[in-house]
Amino acid sequence: MTAVPEVSSGPGQAPRRRLKRSTRRKLVRGSLYLLFIAVVVVLALLADWQAIQTNYLDGEVWRQQFPEIITLGVKNTVLYTVEAFVLGFVLALILALMKLAPVGIYRWAATVYIEFFRGLPALVVILGVGLTIPLAFGYQLPGGTGGAGVVALTLVYGAYMAETIRAGIQAVPKGQYEASRSLGMSSLHTMRSVTLPQALRIVIPPLTNELVALLKDTSLIQFLGFAVGQRELTALASDNVNNFANASPLLAAAVFYLIITLPLTRLVAWMERRGMRSR
């Protein structure tokens, strides 16, 4: 009989063979790599590369997206985003201050507004503003479909950003308020010169995340039906998917979304790392 290395696993248990811990760790890691490679290989074998190439990566169709995809698509996407963000920020600031107001009715009104618009899908608000206001009141918002979309997104993102800004204001240490008031500064001066500047610094990362979400939601405006010159990335891409009977325009639009959003999300990650270190 050959000697087998044995380790007893504990009282009452049969002695069994054991690998060294380091060997076991290596085996686990090795099999995880193997599993990943296997999945990639299977997917590559299953994929219809021919179809992918002709439908998504058609060089001629890609070339024909330019320059419109930038001069029209990116331009309008960015334009709607910036407009809705700036207006939404102003609305959010007002709502946040209302939520912190000493008079209850303001807090209550702000809460009702915020809960209402945060609880609705953005698309419902966009359709509500763009379709039902002209129907019900015979009033056409300025700026056509784009204008209606911007107003709707302002209403929705004003509600989201209000909560973020309120949290930022409340995150400023109470001692800051006390120091300012003890110098004789009024509550208004304190808010403007001491609390808000610090609160806004705190909320830059979360507001940037909301900017990214807003940018993506501008793609919903197209459900109102754009005039040709008002189309943004998604509307333009979906028209061109139909025109060319090819998926390449949508992939091109996706690439441009990522070109805009990835730097922003990386920026947030960087700011959050830096913020953590300075604390």
Binding site: P173, G175, Q176, E178, A179, S182, Q198, R201
Partner: peptide
Amino acid sequence: IGMVFQQFNLFPH
């Protein structure tokens, strides 16, 4: 009335 706090409370910005 000047006031000085335990935690200084300078305005960090």
